[in-house]
């Protein structure tokens, strides 16, 4: 591994690089273990090679309450295939060894069970940059914030359209790396239109923080990515890539290329 700096500083570089190029960063989610452990490493590598600036490696969990049917199906299949927490860490390590930047997206109980300190230590050692926690709010994150700080990892929390200004303030204060703005009230899944609520949420969040803001939930194509890139620092794509993954590496590469053009404002529309 040639990379230097903490996870937080390397994550910041993702956004400063994109900003220098006057574009948004593309953040691609794919779960570990789907369709197989080796296959998921291949798909994540493909996403990075095709233009994703950062990947979110999903850690499969039995009760993904914030996920829609596409991701539920993929993580169910991954768990049935026997994927373990340590496999997710190993995938992060293999991505990092070839220079890829990766954060982990995980529901909180697998981390609790692994041990919060141990997980932070092992993820940092693997070269991971941070953790997105869809069902952990800063109010319950005391031990995680301490461990992440110790290991230089970014704790990445979510804000939602329903978040009050007070909660946006307290959530952004605990967040490092980038803020995850959920574009809409609902579970993950590709949608035909990016909700209007996303623009107002990002605007509200900007009054509380200078952190880069990534927008996720519902983005499925280059045109939508281009739209989100006009007001966000990062465009997060999950379900659409997981759907593409059902059709193999080439489909993931095609969609990633389209999305990468989108975040550069180069997409021709569809």
């Amino acid at each position: 591994m040639t990379a230097t700096g903490t996870g937080i500083t390397r994550l910041a570089e993702v956004f400063t690089t994109a900003k220098a190029e006057d574009r948004a960063a593309l953040i691609a989610y794919l779960p570990s273990g789907y369709p197989t452990i080796k296959g998921s490493l291949g798909l994540l590598t493909q996403a990075l090679d095709a233009g994703a600036d950062l990947v979110e490696v999903g850690l499969p969990y039995s009760d993904p309450v914030l996920d829609g049917p596409v991701i539920q199906h993929a993580v169910d299949a991954a768990l049935k295939g026997g994927v373990r927490v340590r496999d997710t860490l190993a995938i992060v390590e293999q991505l990092a060894e070839r220079g890829g930047r990766a954060v982990v997206m995980t529901y909180w109980n697998p981390v609790l069970r692994y041990g919060v300190d141990a997980f932070a230590r092992d993820l940092a050692a693997a070269g991971g940059l941070g953790v997105i926690t869809p069902d952990l709010v800063p109010d319950e994150a005391g031990s995680w914030l301490a461990a992440a700080d110790r290991e230089g990892l970014a704790p990445i929390f979510l804000v939602a359209p329903s978040s009050s200004d007070e909660r946006i303030a307290s959530t952004t204060a605990a967040t490092r790396g980038f803020l995850y703005a959920a574009s809409t009230m609902g579970v993950t899944g590709a949608r035909d239109a990016v909700s209007d609520t996303a623009t107002s949420l990002v605007a509200r969040a900007r009054t509380h923080t200078d952190l880069p803001i990534g927008v996720g939930l519902g983005v499925r194509n280059g045109a939508q990515a281009g739209e989100v890139a006009t007001f966000a620092d990062g465009v997060i794509v999950g379900s659409a890539l997981v759907s593409a993954a059902e059709h193999g590496r080439a489909a993931v590469a095609r969609l990633t290329t389209e999305l990468a053009a989108g975040v550069r404002g180069q997409h021709t529309g569809r």
């Binding site: 309450v65 069902d135 709010v137 109010d139 939602a160 329903s162 009050s164």
Partner: peptide, 20 residues
């Protein structure tokens, strides 16, 4: 005040539902 019975309870849930 945030629902803890000792080390138990609390709010381990998505931010989107905290307002609710």
């Amino acid at each position: 005040d945030t629902g803890h019975f000792g080390r138990w309870g609390g709010r381990y849930m998505p931010e989107a539902l905290i307002a609710a």
